[in-house]
Every structure is written in structure tokens, then in C-alpha cells.
Design a binder for these strands. Sequence first.
DNA 1: GACGCGTGGCC
DNA 2: TGGCCAAGCGT
Length: 288
Amino acid sequence: MPNLAPALIEWYAANARELPWRQDGFSAWGVLVSEFMLQQTPVNRVIPHLQAWLERWPTPSALADEPAAEALTQWANLGYPRRALWLHRAAVEIRDRFGGQVPSDVDELLSLTGIGDYTARAVAVFAYGQREPVVDINTRRVIARAQHGRSQPGPASPRDLVEMDALLPDEPDDAAAFNAATMELGALICTARNPRCEACPIADQCQWLAAGRPDTGDTRRRQATYEGSDRQARGAVMRALRQAADNALPQASIVPDWPDADQRERAIATLLADGLVRARGDVLELPR
DNA sequence: GACGCGTGGCC
DNA sequence: TGGCCAAGCGT
């Protein structure tokens, strides 16, 4: 088994982007918030939202002491507003169960709402320097190519964690650098489309490149069309409530000219079920 | 394992 | 132009 870590760590030291959450002394809470925002959302869209969020709520308790509606409004157009709801719930849990301190233990992090295998280990590693495997789409793609000679990773699986763990250097600091470097390589060089293999520090160890970059048969899920979808309708409802006075509107005046009335009702019903909106008589509002 | 879930930029 | 893509999560 080739050892990818030395070349990746050296490359990262020279090529890592300067990102807010990589600054010295960036808080664990800041790392946690950044990881919530980065779930399925590009870095460049996250940065301004992250800074505004942390200025308003510098600690978990500061957020926990406000209603969820404030989190949903501050989340603005970042997308997947359930993340804002879950981040608010996690803040309440941190305040109530962990004395307001972001836990450093992976299992404790996993017990928080909205935190799964990736986010728990990202916080443990990047905020607390623990030796844990961090697996995201970038590391899975790098490993799929370098180790397995495949053009794209298969569906995410718990086995990915074991595989990444086996590649981890022994020293926690080296392991943290390896995690960050592998993610960064996937983000900058070993990208999903048009990878820049000529600039890759592990090109000489890459089975996919050695095999001539074959198209190995893509098993990734196709993304559903957004235009005309229920998701678009939900997004329109949430936008209307974010912008409304007191985050509340009579049901009849929520996106009243939406082209498909059944779809609008369906959107409201699922938003209610998800706890993203609440009914108060005839009025629909963000949860307080 | 597969699905539903936002939004915007890119080629 | 429109599909593809972006540091996933809970069910």
C-alpha cells in the first residue's frame, strides 16, 4: 500500500487556501458553524454568511437563547434551511447538555442534531486536533482514483471511514494535516470534472492516472430537476416567510400566484412536518 | 442503499 | 442552454 501522506502534507503546506476557519484561534463553535454551512454549499458562498453569523452569535448559547426563526432568517438564501433549524437545535443541546462548550468527543458530537459522520469528525479534527478519519466527497474521490483507479467514488458507506482510517499517519497533527490536505486536493486539483493531474502531488501514485484516466462507469445519483419541483415551491414559501414582518403571513397570501396550487399546499404540508414552519390559526410563521 | 432536501455558478 | 456540481443529514 503506497503512503500518500507525505506528498499530500507537503503539498498542502505550500498550497492551502487561507480560509477563515483555518485561522489560528478560530473557535470550535466557528468550526462547527462553518461545517454546517459547508454541507453541500460551496466555500465562496459560505464565507460572508459565516462571518455575519459569528458576529451575531459568537457562542452556542447566544444562538440557543434566540428563537429558531432568527436562525432561519439569518440563514437567508444559503439553501437547505433545515440545516439552520438543526444548527439552532444543536446550539440548544450544547447549552443544555454540554455547558455551552462544543464537545470534542466524536460520540458526543454525533449525538447533536444535524451532525453526522463527516461533521462530527471534522469538528473533532479541525477544532480539537484529534486523530480521526474525515471523509467527505473530496476524500472519497481522491481515494477512488488514487487507490482504486476509478473515475468517481461510489455511494458513501461506513467502509469509507475504515479505509480513510487505514491511511492516517500515527501522529494526530500529521493525521489532521492529511485529512485537510486530502480534502483540499479534491477541491482544487482532483476535482469531479477536468481534474488537473499535471499539478497533482500524488500523480506518481495514482492508479486512475496510471490506467489512462478511464471512465469507469458513474454510479452517482442524478440530481432531480429543480425548476418546477416541490423543492422550488418550498424554497419560495420559506423566502416569503423570511421576508415577511414578524416572519408570519396569512396562508392565503403565501406565494399566491404559484403556478401549481396543489404543489404549494404540498410544500406547506411538508414544511410543517419538517418543523420549518408553524401554523397559528390561519397564519403561517417561522417557528419561535 | 436510496431518497428528499435549496441555491447559484459554471462550462 | 441545462445538466452538473458544491466540506451531508436524517429517514
